[in-house]
Amino acid sequence: MKPYQIVDRYARSVFELAEEQGKSETFAHEIDVLSRAMRNQPKFLDLLENPLVTREEKRALIKNILTVEAVHEPPLLLERFLTLLVEKGRIDLFSAMARQLHNKLNEKRGVQEATAVTARRLDPNVVELLKKALEKMTAKKIVLNLQADPSLLGGVRICLGNRLLDGSLRTKLDSLDSQLTMAKV
C-alpha cells in the first residue's frame, strides 16, 4: 500500500473514533502538541522504532510521556493510538497522520487554511479584504496564516490547499527574465 493510503486510513479511523466519543477537538489538539514535541526531539522517533527496545518498554515509555502532572484526564485514546502505531511499525508516519487529522478537523469545521506570503507585513484592512475574497472563492471559512518574505519584492503569493495563486513581483520578473534571454537566440 502507498504511504498516503496508510496515513489516510489510520487518520480516518482514529478521527471517527474520537468523534464518536465527542472528543475530536481535544484529540486533535493533543496530537498537535505531541507531533510538535516529537519534531523537536527527533531521537524520540528513533527510540520508538528501535528494535532493541522491547514492546513492554515502549508501552511504558508512551505512558510515561503522556501522564504529565497537569493533565486531569489522561489521553487514553492517544496512548492507545500511539501504541498501535508502534506495534504495527507505522510510527514513522506519525507526523503525516497528525497533519491529516488536522485537515480532517478543518474539513469538519468547514474551515480552509490558507497561507499568504508577502514582501512586507500586510495592513489589517487588506488582510480582511483578502480573506473575504478567498472566502468568496472557496465558499469556506478561511483561516489565513501570514508570512513575510522580502525576496518576493511585492505582490502576494497564496497557498490554498494544493493550489498556488502566485501574484508576486518576483515571479513576474523571473518570467520576464527568461523571456528576454530566450528572445536573444
Partner: peptide, 23 residues
C-alpha cells in the same frame, strides 16, 4: 490539556534513559 513544554521535557527524560542503546 496536554502542554507542549511538559511533553517535550518528558520525552527528553525518556530519551536519556535509553541513551546508551541509541548510540
Amino acid at each position: 490539556m496536554l502542554k507542549p513544554e511538559e511533553v517535550t521535557s518528558a520525552i527528553k527524560s525518556e530519551i536519556q534513559k535509553f541513551e546508551k542503546r541509541l548510540q
